[in-house]
Simulated scan of single mutants.
Amino acid sequence: MSVIPAKDPRLTWSGTISLEEGPGWVKPWRIPRGDLDLYSPGESGLAGRAEMPSGVRVRLATDAEELAVGCEPLAEDGRFDLCVGGQIVATAPYAAGATEVCFEGLPAGEKSVEIWLSPAMPVAVRHIALPEGAYCEKSEDTRLRWVAYGSSITHCRTAGSPATTWPGVVARARDFNLTSLGFGGQCHADPFIARLIRDLPADFISVKIGINIYGAASLGPRAFCPAVLGTIATIRDGHPHTPFAVCSPIWGHDRETTPNMIGLTLEQMRAEVAEAVEAFKRRGDENIYYIDGLKLFDESLAEHLPDNLHPDATGYEIMGENFLEEVFGVQGVEVGEKPR
């Protein structure tokens, strides 16, 4: 086999914010690793979630019909996906402790492949191994860029496989270059995340906000709507005209009408997210859209919410299909052809 080191410039790391380099390996992060004290101070668990590569892909052009990903020992059982042209052509399961994940039966001929890493654990890649004689060239990702911010329901650690998270379903269907900022338990309208999105190139932005704030009671009735307004305003500072979907929580069982410890219900939070979007519309923002979370996942899908909070693997795929229909069908969001 021909070994391509993870640091080789022929490999494109898509969906990453920063890369950590160790002795012979590269680990993707979804926040700037050099600024962990700003993004994840004190007792915050954001760093641990940002170290998990949800939506991160290793991209290359090759004619190989098989390849292997060499990595540091993986912490638990999981899967990687390999996609060509947005289609999953191979899924490779592995067991805890594995140091190699192998794909076989890839389409013949020249192609750009994307290896979707597991969203459920940190992954430090050592190399890509190709058969002798197979070529490897850089495949730049020039597709329209989508930045998606959200909670564990956007992180999707329990998706069936890495490319079947709901953002993965949408990105593959729309041919987007996805950057997923879904952080399990850690979507609290953090100012530094809003600043990060502000400064990233983006052709489409989505923010799905509320459920972590409800669960942790991190913002009360006085602060919740202002925090949503501030998140939108900060992002708009860098992307004044980019299509922007602001999503409220999906159906949440008894959380719908049961106040949390500081008096918020999901029904109330949806109304406040909707009002925040309307405030920007009243000021002339014609490219911001309110997406009711119940349009993405409502009570009729309760069988796919096994813990009454997180969708199961099928639920995530349904949620992706519903996002496609609601955002690009019903609401008619149009995403431009040039990065902003």
Score class of each variant (00 low, 15 high):
V3N: 07
S14I: 08
I17F: 08
I17E: 13
G24K: 03
V26E: 04
K27Q: 15
W29Y: 15
I31S: 12
G34K: 14
D37I: 07
S40V: 10
E43G: 11
A47G: 12
A47W: 11
E51W: 07
R59F: 04
A61M: 01
E65P: 05
V69Y: 00
E72Q: 15
D77I: 10
F80C: 08
V89P: 08
A92D: 11
V113I: 14
A120T: 09
A120R: 06
V123S: 04
V125M: 06
G133L: 12
R143Q: 08
G150C: 08
W166K: 07
P167F: 09
G168E: 03
A173Y: 02
D175R: 15
N177K: 06
N177C: 09
F183Y: 14
G184P: 05
C187P: 12
A189C: 14
D190A: 09
P201K: 00
A202V: 00
A202Q: 03
A202S: 10
D203G: 15
F204M: 07
I205H: 05
S206H: 06
I213M: 11
C225A: 14
A227E: 01
V228Q: 03
V228D: 01
G230E: 12
T231C: 13
I232H: 02
R236E: 04
H239N: 06
P240S: 06
G252K: 00
G252A: 10
D254G: 08
P259K: 13
E267F: 00
A271I: 05
E275G: 11
E275P: 00
A276G: 05
V277T: 00
I288R: 03
Y290V: 04
I291K: 02
I291A: 01
L294E: 03
L294Q: 02
L294G: 03
S300W: 00
A302M: 01
D307H: 07
D307M: 06
L309T: 12
H310Y: 09
P311N: 08
G315Q: 07
G315R: 04
M319N: 07
N322W: 06
E326F: 02
V327R: 03
Q331M: 14
V335M: 08
